[in-house]
Simulated assay, not measured.
Amino acid sequence: MPSAPPVTETDAQLATRLAVEAGELLVALRAEMFAAGASIWDVRDAGDAAAQRYLAGELHTHRADDAVLSEEGLEDVRRYEADRVWIIDPLDGTREYGEPGRHDWAVHVALWERTHFGAAAVSLPAVDLVFSTDPPAPMPEQVRDRPRLVTSRSRAPYAAVLVAEGLGCDAVRLGSAGAKAMAVVMGEADIYVHDGGMYQWDSAAPAAVAMAAGFHASRVDGSPLVYNERDPWLPDFFVCRPELAEGVLKAIWG
């Protein structure tokens, strides 16, 4: 059951609570279904559906006038003219969620207000962590001689290969976009580059959380990230420590 929200819950508090509580729901559901012998496909489908229902219901209850853009929901046409749009990914890393023991999946909740983020949170439920725009995460110290690049489990995007070669990076692999971006925020990695195609809900909350903490986040050509475009396709972005941003762009574009 969702906890009783504060009467004066701010947007950041709401985003954080929803990311945490959706994550708790997903952790419990996964454990229950695997204990009952469910297939990985059923676990994945059930997780997507349950987290979507929870987030949609909470946003309808507590921010009924706001529009919603979600990976799992129907198109909310109000968002085309709305000043406030919640961009959510109820289960980022569905593949990883369906593999027992994997922790690299996330819940994304972000609020876009015309030209900027109003609030956001990313939870990593399997390791009981949440990152918010308020308060932002402290930026960790740089302790490595060689930058560490985090990239996809299944393939290395071309831009990531260029950055790894150009900056002499060590590379690690993780699942979801949220997990990779939060690895940078936590200091477990220094750079996350993706240019292989994604949607607005894949990067919105991770980018907002990273930027609030002082990290660089942009398109791979260095242009700003813009959300709530009519086409939900937003194929590339990167997150890195601010002192590495110029080197990343130079490695990609020369």
Rank of each mutant, 00 (worst) to 15 (best):
A49Y: 07
H108E: 05
S123K: 00
P136W: 06
E229L: 13
E99N: 08
P235F: 08
D65G: 06
A106T: 10
V85Q: 02
R153D: 12
S70L: 09
G178K: 01
V77Y: 15
D145C: 08
P138M: 15
P140G: 00
A28H: 02
P147L: 08
S70Q: 03
G196W: 01
A121G: 11
G47H: 07
G254C: 02
W233Q: 12
S176M: 13
P232Q: 01
F117L: 01
P242T: 14
R153Q: 13
A50M: 05
L18T: 01
L69F: 03
A106F: 08
E229Y: 12
A208P: 10
G175C: 14
L225S: 06
V77M: 15
T133K: 08
L225I: 06
V20W: 09
L55F: 03
V122Q: 04
I191R: 00
P6Y: 11
L69P: 03
G98K: 05
L69G: 04
L29C: 11
P6L: 07
A245H: 13
H62I: 02
V85C: 09
P6M: 03
S154I: 13
V127C: 13
V185I: 08
A15E: 10
G197S: 02
A19W: 12
V220Q: 11
A31P: 14
A177K: 09
D236P: 02
A19I: 07
H60K: 04
D231C: 11
A51F: 12
D42K: 12
A181W: 01
G73F: 05
E21F: 04
A28M: 01
V130L: 10
E21G: 04
T61F: 04
Y54P: 02
G222V: 06
D145K: 10
A64E: 05
W233F: 13
L29R: 03
G214E: 00
D145S: 09
R102T: 10
E32P: 02
A212M: 10
R173A: 14
A177F: 15
A210F: 12
Y192W: 12
A204D: 00
A164F: 11
Y54A: 05
A179R: 01
R155P: 11
V109R: 01
L249P: 06
D83R: 13
S132M: 10
L69K: 02
D221M: 07
A50E: 06
D42H: 11
C169Q: 01
G166R: 07
H216K: 04
P138Q: 15
A50F: 14
V161G: 13
E32A: 14
R30N: 09
D134N: 13
V150A: 00
G166W: 11
R95S: 14
P136M: 12
E71Y: 15
P140E: 03
V143N: 04
A15Q: 13
D66Q: 05
R44D: 15
G37K: 08
H108V: 00
H103W: 09
D89H: 10
L14F: 12
A164P: 15
Y158A: 15
S132C: 10
A179W: 14
E188D: 15
E99P: 05
N228D: 09
P140R: 02
G254A: 01
S154M: 12
R30V: 06
T61K: 08
E9T: 04
H194P: 06
R79S: 06
H60L: 04
A12R: 07
A217R: 00
S218A: 15
V161L: 07
G214H: 08
